[in-house]
Design a protein around this nucleic acid. Structure first.
Length: 584
RNA sequence: GGGGUAGUAGUUCAGCUGGUUAGAACGCCGGCCUGUCAAGCCGGAGGUCGCGGGUUCGAGUCCCGUCUAUCCCGCCA
C-alpha cells in the first residue's frame, strides 16, 4: 500500500498545489452530475474531495457512506465564497486523480453523526460504530490526555507506577466481590479487586514510598449513571505523611489536570467542609457548591406555628429558592412526589411575595412569626420555601436531594465551572442496623484522629477518622485517608466491627502480620478516573468516557456477556449451576 | 429487591375515545443534476407493532404477565 501523506484534518492553504494521498471513510457524497463532492473522514478531521472526470465520476457513483477509500490528488484553494468554516480543512479541497476502494461498507444500522438518533441499547450493541462519532472519540482522547498529565505529574513528584494482582482474595468488607473460580484449587475462588487497598499499604511497608497506579477495580453492586461494575482508579499512597501532606499533593495534581487538560485555573487550597457541616448545610456528603442554596434549621420557627405536624417532628429543615413563579402547583406536586419517593412524608412549601407568606402552609404562621422568618432566614420577595419535617436524618437527606433537583430545574449551574471541596472529619464507623454492628464509613484501614484512638474502641460511634473525600460539582471524585499503621489498633478496629478473631485471621491475617514489621505512617487517596474525565468532558454519564461500557444490568450488549459456558468448562472448575426457580 | 420512563420499517419517531390498506423523516435501490458541504428534485422497495396470554365481532391502541434499555431508591466509595 502506498503510504498516506497527510491525515484528513491537517491540509490547509499551506499545502496548495501539493500532491497528497489521503486514507479514510466516506463521510458523505454529493453528486451533481458532472461533479461529485466526497467528504473523506478519519479521526483527525474531514477533507472535501472533488471528482470531475468521466471515469472518476463513474467510480464515484458506486461509492456510499462508510466505504474505506484512498484518494490521491492535488490540493487547491477554495474561492472565498466556498470556504467551509466548520472544518479545519475548509479553505482547501483535493481534486482527485485516483481513487481506490479499499473496502465497501454495508449500510450502517445507525447514524454515527447524531448519537441522540439511536437508542442506547442499539448504540451499545454497535459500539465500535458509535465510536466513529467524533464527540465520543474526543472524550477518549481527553481521557488519554488526562492519564498522560497524571503520569507526568506523579513521575515528577517521585511516584512509581507498580502493578498489583487482579486475581486476588475475597474480603468480607465493602462491596460484593466479583469471583473467579480456580481450576487448580477445586472449590476455591479468587476475587477481583474492589481496589488495591491492601497491596498499596504493603508497598509502604516494603519501603516503596510514593506508589501510584492507574488501575481497573471491580464491584458487583447495582449501577447508576456514574457507576460501572468495572471502573478505573488513579490510586496513590505515600509514606511519612499526615492528612495535610496528601491533600496538598492531591490539590496540586487536580489543579494541574484541570489546567493542562481543560485550561481551567483552580484556586488552591480548596475549601474544606466537615462531614457534619456538609450534612447540615447541604444534606449530603457530596455537595455541589456551584449554587448557593443552603438548608436552614426551621424547627425554632415551626415550633411557634400552629402546624401540629411540624411541632411533633424531631427536625424541620428548609431551603429558600428564588423564582417562586416558576413553581406552579404541578411542579410543586412533582417535587412532592419526588420527596415521598425518597422516604419523606411530604414536601411543605410557602411562597413569599409583597413581604408576606402566602399559599402552601403559610396560614399556620402568624404575621409576626412570618416577618421574623423572613428577616432571620434572609428571604426576599419572589422566593419560595420548601420544608421537610421528619427525623433529622431524613429531613436533611431528602431536602439535600430537593436542593439538587431544584437547581437542575432552574439551571442554577454552569458545566464549565468547577467547584472542588474537601469533605473531612467523617465518622470512623456507622451503625449497621440490619446486621447490628459497627461498619466502616470508608474501610477498616482508616486511622482515627489522634485524640480518638481510645474513643474508637470505647465509643465507636463518636470517633472521627482521618479520611478525606474530594467532591467536585456534586460528584465524589476521590477518597482517601491516613491509614492505621499500628498492628494492635488495626486488630481492635476489626474486633469493634464484630469480626471474630478467626475471621480476622483468615481474611486479613497476612496483613495484620505485615503491620508488625516496621510499618511507616502512611496514607493515600484513590480517584475515580471515569468520573474525573466525565467532569472534564462536560458529560453527565460515565458511559460516554468509557470505550466499551456495560449496561445498568452489568451486561455487554455487543459481545453478549455474561454468558453461559460449556459443561466441560464447568466440570474443570467443579462447578454446578443451581437453577433459579423463578426463571425456570 | 422496589419505583418511573421507553420498546411500531435498517434508524428515529407519529399513530386520538379500539374500526377497514399502520404513516413521516433519514438511510437503502433506480433516475436527473457542475459548487455542494447532513446538497436538491423525481420514483421505488422496505413492517410478525419487544415477547406470551387475555378481553372483544374487531387490539399497535384496553387488561395481565414477561424481557430489554434507561433514570432513581435500596445497595455501592
Amino acid at each position: 500500500m502506498n503510504s498516506r501523506t497527510h491525515n484528513c484534518g491537517e491540509l490547509t492553504k499551506k499545502n496548495i498545489d501539493k500532491n497528497v494521498r489521503l486514507f479514510g471513510w466516506i463521510n458523505s457524497t454529493r453528486t451533481h452530475g458532472k461533479i461529485i463532492f466526497i467528504d473523506i473522514r478519519d479521526r483527525f478531521g474531514k477533507t472535501q474531495i472533488i471528482l470531475n472526470t468521466d471515469s472518476l465520476i463513474e467510480k464515484g457513483k458506486t461509492l456510499s457512506n462508510e466505504d474505506v477509500i484512498s484518494v490521491s490528488g492535488t490540493v487547491i484553494a477554495r474561492s472565498a465564497d466556498l470556504v467551509n468554516k466548520n472544518i479545519t480543512t475548509g479553505e482547501i479541497e483535493v481534486v482527485a486523480e485516483q481513487i481506490k476502494i479499499l473496502n465497501v461498507s454495508a449500510p450502517l444500522p445507525m447514524s454515527i453523526h447524531d448519537r441522540e438518533a439511536s437508542t442506547e441499547e442499539h448504540r451499545l450493541k454497535y459500539r465500535y460504530l458509535e465510536l466513529r462519532n467524533s464527540e465520543l472519540q474526543n472524550n477518549l482522547i481527553l481521557r488519554n490526555k488526562t492519564t498522560q498529565v497524571v503520569r507526568n505529574f506523579l513521575n515528577e513528584q517521585d511516584f512509581i507506577e507498580i502493578e498489583t494482582p487482579v486475581l486476588t482474595k475475597s474480603t468480607p468488607e465493602g462491596a460484593r466481590d466479583y469471583l473467579v473460580p480456580s481450576r487448580v484449587h477445586n472449590g476455591k475462588f479468587y476475587a477481583l479487586p474492589q481496589s488495591p487497598q491492601m497491596y498499596k499499604q504493603l508497598f509502604m511497608i516494603s519501603g516503596l514510598d510514593r506508589y501510584f497506579q492507574i488501575v481497573k477495580c471491580f464491584r458487583d453492586e447495582d449501577l447508576r449513571s456514574d457507576r460501572q461494575p468495572e471502573f478505573t482508579q488513579i490510586d496513590l499512597e505515600m509514606s511519612f505523611v499526615d492528612e495535610e501532606h496528601v491533600r496538598d499533593m492531591v490539590e496540586q495534581l487536580i489543579a494541574t489536570v484541570f489546567d493542562e487538560v481543560n485550561n481551567v485555573k483552580m484556586q488552591t487550597p480548596f475549601p474544606t467542609l466537615s462531614y457534619e457541616e456538609a450534612m447540615k448545610r447541604f444534606g449530603t456528603d457530596k455537595p455541589d457548591l456551584r449554587y448557593s442554596i443552603e438548608i436552614q434549621d426551621f424547627k425554632k420557627f415551626s415550633d411557634q406555628s400552629d402546624f401540629q405536624a411540624f411541632k411533633n417532628s424531631e427536625s424541620v429543615q428548609m431551603i429558600n429558592v428564588h423564582n417562586s413563579e416558576f413553581f406552579s402547583r404541578k411542579i410543586i406536586s412533582e417535587l412532592d412526589s419526588y420527596a415521598q419517593s425518597l422516604g419523606a412524608k411530604g414536601l411543605a412549601w410557602m411562597k413569599y411575595n409583597d413581604s408576606i407568606f402566602e399559599s402552601g402552609i403559610s396560614k399556620f404562621f402568624n404575621k409576626n412569626l412570618q416577618s421574623n422568618i423572613a428577616s432571620d432566614c434572609n428571604i426576599k420577595n419572589g422566593s419560595i420555601c420548601f420544608m421537610i419535617a421528619d427525623s433529622s436524618e431524613i429531613s436533611l437527606k431528602v431536602l439535600g436531594k430537593i436542593r439538587v433537583k431544584v437547581a437542575d430545574m432552574l439551571s442554577l449551574y454552569d458545566d464549565s465551572v468547577f467547584k472542588p471541596v474537601w469533605i473531612v472529619d467523617f465518622p470512623l464507623f456507622n451503625w449497621d442496623e440490619d446486621n447490628q454492628r459497627f461498619d466502616s464509613v470508608h474501610h477498616p484501614f482508616v486511622a482515627p484522629k489522634d485524640q480518638d484512638i481510645k474513643t474508637a474502641i470505647s465509643e465507636p460511634e463518636k470517633a472521627i477518622s482521618k479520611g478525606y473525600d474530594i467532591v467536585i460539582n456534586g460528584y465524589e471524585i476521590a477518597g482517601g485517608s491516613i491509614r492505621i499503621h499500628d498492628q494492635k489498633l488495626q486488630q481492635k478496629i476489626f474486633e469493634t466491627m464484630n469480626l471474630t478473631k478467626k475471621d480476622i485471621q483468615s481474611k486479613f491475617g497476612f496483613f495484620i502480620d505485615a503491620l508488625k514489621f516496621g510499618t511507616p505512617p502512611h496514607g493515600g487517596i484513590a480517584f475515580g478516573l471515569d468520573r474525573l474525565v466525565m467532569l472534564l468532558a462536560g458529560v453527565n454519564n460515565i458511559r460516554d468516557v468509557i470505550a466499551f461500557p456495560k449496561t445498568t444490568s452489568a451486561s455487554a450488549l455487543m459481545e453478549d456477556s455474561p454468558n453461559t459456558v460449556s459443561d466441560e468448562q464447568l466440570d474443570d472448575l467443579g462447578i454446578g449451576i443451581k437453577k433459579n426457580e423463578k426463571k425456570v
